[in-house]
Computed example of a mutant assay.
Amino acid sequence: MKRNPLVPYYLIMVLGLVLVFFLGIKGIGDAKEIAKEKEGGAEQVEEFDPEQYANTSCISCHGENLEGQGSIPSLHGTGLSKDEIADILANGQGGMPGGLVPADNIDEMAEWIANLK
């Protein structure tokens, strides 16, 4: 019994056409959703969480509990005002570079650090 060597290629072609058809339909639905987002209908504003930001960004230098490591100071009980902390976050000081915290969130982060005990 001889098999036709083109059958697998025909099956692959049919599968490809079916995928193109269904992915095209999916794309039409996504296009409507994208258009709605561009109009501002599905706009989502993500809130800044200073504690979460500190746990992801600051612990690499200031230690797991933000209590400092070696020459790097602790963030607990700094004795600095909110404005002084905001200035350090924006411009840097010593070994800490400025601009690590997004500019829009510096005040929130400074207040959170100022209130750490």
Rank of each mutant, 00 (worst) to 15 (best):
M13S: 12
L17A: 04
V18L: 11
V18W: 02
L19I: 06
V20L: 15
L23S: 06
G29S: 05
A31V: 02
K32L: 05
K32P: 00
K32C: 01
E33F: 03
E33M: 13
I34L: 11
A35L: 04
E37Q: 12
E39K: 13
G40T: 02
G40L: 03
A42V: 14
A42D: 11
A42C: 09
E46V: 14
E46Q: 08
E46G: 00
E46A: 12
E46M: 10
E47Y: 02
F48D: 01
P50K: 15
E51T: 01
E51H: 06
Q52N: 08
Y53E: 12
A54P: 02
N55W: 01
S57W: 05
C58A: 03
C61G: 07
G63L: 07
L66S: 10
E67F: 01
E67K: 07
G68V: 04
S71W: 03
S71C: 00
P73H: 15
P73Q: 10
S74E: 05
L75V: 02
H76G: 00
L80P: 00
S81A: 02
K82R: 12
I85P: 13
A86I: 08
I88K: 10
I88L: 06
I88T: 15
A90K: 14
N91F: 07
N91R: 09
Q93E: 11
G94W: 06
G94D: 13
M96L: 09
M96G: 10
G98P: 13
G98Y: 08
G99K: 13
L100I: 15
L100F: 04
V101D: 14
V101M: 07
V101W: 15
P102A: 04
A103W: 00
A103Q: 09
D104P: 02
I106K: 08
I106E: 03
D107I: 05
E108A: 11
M109C: 05
M109F: 05
A110R: 09
A110C: 05
